[in-house]
Amino acid sequence: MKDMQNVQHLTEEERRLVGYNADEFVDENFSGHSYVKEIILTLFANKATAISLICLLVIVLFAIFAPMLSPYTYKEINSKTTNMPMRIPVLEDLGIFDGTRKGVDMYAKKGIEDQYHYFGTDNLGRDIWTRVWVGTRISLLIAVLAVVLDVVIGVTYGMVAGFFGGKIDMIMQRLIEILTGIPNLIIMMLLLLAMEPGIPTICLALAITGWVNMSRIVRAQVLKLKSNEYVLASRTLGASPKRILLKHLLPNTMGQIIITFMFSVPHAIFFEAFLAFIGLGVPIPMASLGTLINDGYRSAMLYPYQVLCPAAVLSVLMLSFNLLGDGLRDAIDPQMRSM
């Protein structure tokens, strides 16, 4: 009403009745929405997630390239240079990590002033830097392989149980309950005793106990989705169960699967480390983060860096995976944020 006074006259042109132009009804309201883009943007809007993603990338890159670029190998034993302290170029000029122990330059003492062991060496004279990254590589490999196996078993089991329901589901759930009734550690130890120790065995041991969680999550999701109207629509069109499972239920469970994957990997890494720590790890001279910590732990009082270096990498790795998982969950499934 207040605007009434200051409205000027309309020009001749402005008074013309033009109506609408039907060709202009191309609506662009929603065309810009992109699900994937939104997820990525939400992901990076979260600082913790972005940092953890960068950390993870750096760790993976180091795990791949650091051993290649290092002048040492992970199994090369050198009795001359045992338990060398850390020596890192540039930083040594600042007076830290300069290869001295109690004021004595150990590198000068051994006459290897041209050598740099970034993380020092262990009691067999092996370069810990190289071993840490080889160990990370193996830990990651075991964890990812184990979790992929998890996903394959868990998703199949969960989808079948959730989709067919009824008696099938009942039997399948009881089976899981029996399986979870047996302590994981016993299954793993029996398996590791029965089979040759090595990466495949450890993977299998981890997967055998890990898939239950995945199958439960997938089953719950399928139970929720299968009464959705698009699944009903597909049924009224005569779709086979296989088609419904693969075309409708699987793609819509993918978010949950990725989230669970992200949380399972650190869990598997940790479990692998734990197995290594109780002496069921990869055979020597191979190294995983777990075996490295186990080795370093023995001389932790004298040479703390031998345990701290692999432990630090393990911590950062696990933290990054967990934070990334958190961020992904927020981005993919905002309703789960409160959980």
């Binding site: 109207e229 698009y230 009903l232 597909s234 069109l237 005569g238 075309k247 993918m254």
Partner: peptide, 30 residues
């Protein structure tokens, strides 16, 4: 093939991971 249904919630009745092309073609695909 001869009897079909239109559902209440237009969002819930379309698979969010499929393009309109594939959603519509589902029946003729099957």
């Amino acid at each position: 093939t001869k009897m079909h249904m239109i559902f209440q919630d237009p969002m819930a009745s379309l698979n969010p991971r499929e393009k309109v092309m594939d959603i519509i073609a589902e029946g003729i695909d099957i």
